[in-house]
Amino acid sequence: MTVAGMSTTEQSVDAAGQAAGSSFYAAMRILPAAQRDAMFQIYSFCRQVDDIADSDGPRAERLAAMAQWRVDIDALYAGHPPARVAAYAPVVKTFGLRREDYHAIIDGMEMDIPAEIRAPDAATLDLYCDRVASAVGRLSVRVFGIPAPDGDLLAHHLGRALQLSNILRDIDEDASIGRLYLPREALLAAGITATDPETVAADPNLPKACAPLVAQALKHFADADAVMARHPRRLVKAPRIMSRYYRAILGRLIARGFASPRAPVRLGKLTKLLIILQYAFI
């Protein structure tokens, strides 16, 4: 038995249940069993620390909870893991997962805790994207078997492409909880001096502020594609599906535009199925 009295198999099923319905889930289901279980475990870890960051608990308690995750990860790599990360040990060993990538994810999620992020400068936004997305990618590419240095390069570009697409998609949702991830430089260049999230979301110049992020995301998608093109199809099936999901979302955001009011953008089941068929089986 392992975490919270659950067997490794039970944990995999539990993690898969948490992921079900997400874009992540379909991309991971096509993997061989060992890789699939490892990816669901990574997803479960990310969900747990993200839930801490997004909870409405006292900030001090959330920071303490993040600190405990760092202690637990360090104990895992020291060879005496506490119960909740005991099942990580074989996956870490099998796929050569790095402690610093787990720490980076914790650090990234923690950036939302001391105060709500509002119009960070471009360097801070890039650091945030690296920690909450590209660090997840650095764990993932080791599970996929994509060799270095291309594995880390793919994580760099695809992680940023996905996170920037998320930011562009979730402007209104983030504003509703007091967050604004659009960079300060892009806002000022568009003539927006406010940093209040809902004020910025309603500003008629918002499309101008979004344009640089759209361009950055498209460039990162293109660079990620170039990396994946250098490797056998079997190694890049899962990241290609994730890339195509989010590239389709970005395409719909571009077609919709960023002027207020903005209708939510989602992918339908048929679109998702066609992407899976194209990149997993055809």
Rank of each mutant, 00 (worst) to 15 (best):
T2C: 03
T2M: 11
V3Q: 14
V3F: 07
A4D: 08
A4P: 13
G5P: 05
S7R: 13
S7P: 12
T9G: 11
D14M: 14
D14H: 15
A15T: 08
A16G: 14
G17C: 08
Q18N: 13
Q18F: 04
A19D: 02
A19S: 12
A20M: 00
A20I: 01
A20N: 07
G21W: 07
G21Y: 12
G21M: 03
G21S: 11
G21A: 02
S22D: 04
S22H: 04
S23M: 08
S23C: 00
S23I: 02
F24K: 02
R29S: 05
I30K: 13
I30D: 03
L31V: 04
P32D: 01
P32E: 05
Q35E: 06
Q35K: 15
R36I: 05
R36L: 01
R36T: 05
A38R: 11
A38K: 02
A38N: 09
M39V: 13
F40D: 10
Q41R: 14
Q41V: 02
I42Q: 13
Y43L: 02
Y43Q: 03
C46Y: 06
Q48H: 14
V49S: 09
D50W: 03
D50P: 01
D51N: 06
D51E: 13
I52M: 06
I52V: 15
A53G: 14
S55H: 12
D56H: 14
D56M: 13
G57N: 12
R59Y: 06
R59E: 03
R59G: 10
A60H: 10
E61C: 05
E61Q: 11
R62S: 04
L63D: 02
L63C: 00
A64E: 14
A64P: 12
A64N: 07
A65L: 07
M66E: 00
M66Q: 13
Q68E: 11
W69Y: 09
V71H: 14
V71S: 10
V71F: 13
D72S: 03
D72T: 07
I73R: 05
I73Y: 03
A78S: 12
A78R: 09
H80L: 08
P81L: 02
P81M: 10
P82R: 15
P82A: 05
A83V: 09
V85T: 09
A86P: 08
A87G: 09
Y88F: 15
Y88I: 00
A89I: 07
P90G: 11
V91T: 15
V91D: 02
V92I: 12
V92E: 05
K93L: 15
K93W: 08
T94D: 13
T94G: 09
T94W: 03
F95K: 03
F95R: 11
L97I: 12
L97R: 11
R99C: 09
R99K: 15
E100K: 03
E100F: 10
E100N: 07
D101F: 10
Y102I: 06
H103C: 09
A104M: 09
